[in-house]
């Protein structure tokens, strides 16, 4: 049986800087993968390449045995969807944003699912007629997530989507995504700098350094006993860096 997604020898360079250096990995079953690593190691670039917002210089991505070269980008993005750290609201109201997918693809709007997701993400108080531009950062982030989930992508690429959320909202997002993953059998590739969150959520961890996949481990195994010095240093350093940021 073909892998869900394969990344073969992905390389990307901006001017003189190597961003991805032969990144290779496979996803064989639906799971939550945390993509960890220091800033500037190519994590966001990898996600943007996977949803084809950027092109790799070399290498190939293969979805269910089909090379990216043979799949229409629109169809590809319906299956592999990217949610960026900075959530962009489209012009109009909250409801206009929630209806985007049904309008783009001329499919019925799943009102019930939208309502359920909004409630689960603690957004039940939100007036759907409110202008999207007037939402707070955290509200925008969660509405953007609901908007994407309504597309029901097979693989969801999440780029620090809880970074601007308070603890309560962060846990609500985690719960929704865990339930979604179990019910829909989706795969998440999740960039986070929150190690505790990665521990709570990950079935698997990809640790990336200088554009290469240094570790591809089971979630528990990675946090208990990372096999590389870089990963061990990273795990020791991140909590200190985070606490210094809070001060």
């Amino acid at each position: 049986m073909a892998n869900i997604l394969e990344m073969n020898q992905l390389r990307k360079r901006y001017l003189d800087k190597i961003i991805l250096d032969g990144f290779t990995a496979q996803i064989t079953r639906p799971e939550i993968i945390s993509l960890l690593g220091k800033s500037g190691q190519g994590k966001s670039t990898l996600l943007r390449i996977l949803c084809r917002l950027e092109a790799q210089d070399e290498g190939e991505t293969i979805l269910h045995g089909h090379s990216y070269l043979t799949v229409d980008p629109k169809e590809w993005r319906k299956k592999i969807c990217y949610v960026s750290q900075q959530s962009y609201m489209l012009p109009g109201s909250v409801e206009d944003n929630l209806r985007t997918v049904s309008q783009l693809h001329k499919t019925p709007f799943d009102m019930q699912l939208a309502r359920e997701l909004m409630i689960s993400l603690n957004l039940d108080y939100l007036d759907w007629g409110k202008k999207s531009i007037d939402l707070s950062g955290g509200e925008k982030q969660r509405v953007a997530l609901v908007r994407t989930l309504l597309l029901k992508p097979e693989i969801l690429l999440l780029d620090e989507v809880t970074a601007s959320l308070d603890m309560q909202s962060k846990h609500a997002v985690e719960k929704v995504l865990q339930d979604w993953q179990e019910q829909e059998g989706a795969t998440f590739i999740w960039i986070t700098h929150d190690i505790e969150q990665a521990q709570r959520m990950s079935h698997r961890v990809w640790f990336i350094e200088e554009g290469s996949l240094l570790e591809d481990s089971d979630g528990r195994e990675f946090f208990e006993n990372p096999s590389t010095v870089s990963a061990r240093n990273y795990l020791q350093r991140v909590p200190q860096e985070e606490s210094s940021c809070l001060i």
Binding site: K74, R77, K78, C81, Y82, S84, Q86, Y88, T100, T148
Partner: peptide
């Protein structure tokens, strides 16, 4: 950002 958001949703 707005254009890429729409592209990401299969536009």
């Amino acid at each position: 950002g707005e254009i890429e958001t729409l592209l990401c949703l299969g536009a």
